[in-house]
């Protein structure tokens, strides 16, 4: 196996975890796109429609929409439905505040296109690194 890909970014909220990635090419507005009672993406036009953010390393370009979105992240965490970590290309105030109050490790300035949904990734927000431990692309290659 090739040595794991390591992506370098900027740590915003401290913390570490290893979990499966859920990657969105579109921005996420936590107010409206995500149901705080189930953790599912409920916006029909969103590329992750129907997916659950619980325990995932949630990767997306950036947030958008109302600042109430920060509170949705807090409610998700209180209901045990929060992502394990958040990886952004560009941090914006709604997501930063949400990650702070919900205590979710967060890194920005990462090229999220290098990560695929289903990849097992190790996040270290102290160092600002995302290590792809097991890539779905490699798994697929093995099968063929």
């Amino acid at each position: 196996m090739a040595s794991p890909v390591i992506l370098h970014g900027r740590g915003i909220v401290e913390g570490k975890c290893v979990a499966e990635a859920l990657v969105s090419t579109k921005p996420i507005s936590f107010l409206g796109d995500v149901d705080p009672a189930t953790g599912k993406i409920i916006e029909r036009r969103h590329s992750l429609y129907g997916k659950c953010v619980k325990d995932k390393v949630l990767c997306f370009p950036h947030g958008h929409g109302s600042t109430v979105g920060s509170y949705v992240l807090y409610s998700l965490a209180k209901n045990g439905l929060a992502p394990k970590a958040i990886i952004n290309r560009r941090a914006d105030p709604v997501i930063v505040v949400g990650a702070v109050i919900a205590n979710i490790p967060m890194i920005d300035q990462v090229d999220v296109n290098q990560i695929r949904t289903g990849d097992l990734v190790e996040v270290d927000a102290h160092k600002g690194t995302v290590k792809v431990l097991k890539s779905t692309a490699e798994e697929l290659a093995k099968c063929t």
């Binding site: 107010l31 705080p36 109430v68 509170y71 949705v72 807090y74 209180k78 109050i101």
Partner: peptide, 15 residues
């Protein structure tokens, strides 16, 4: 801002 229940919904109450 963020005082109106119409625009906030339930999410902020917890926090």
């Amino acid at each position: 801002s963020g005082v109106s229940y119409k625009t906030l919904g339930d999410a902020p109450t917890d926090f």
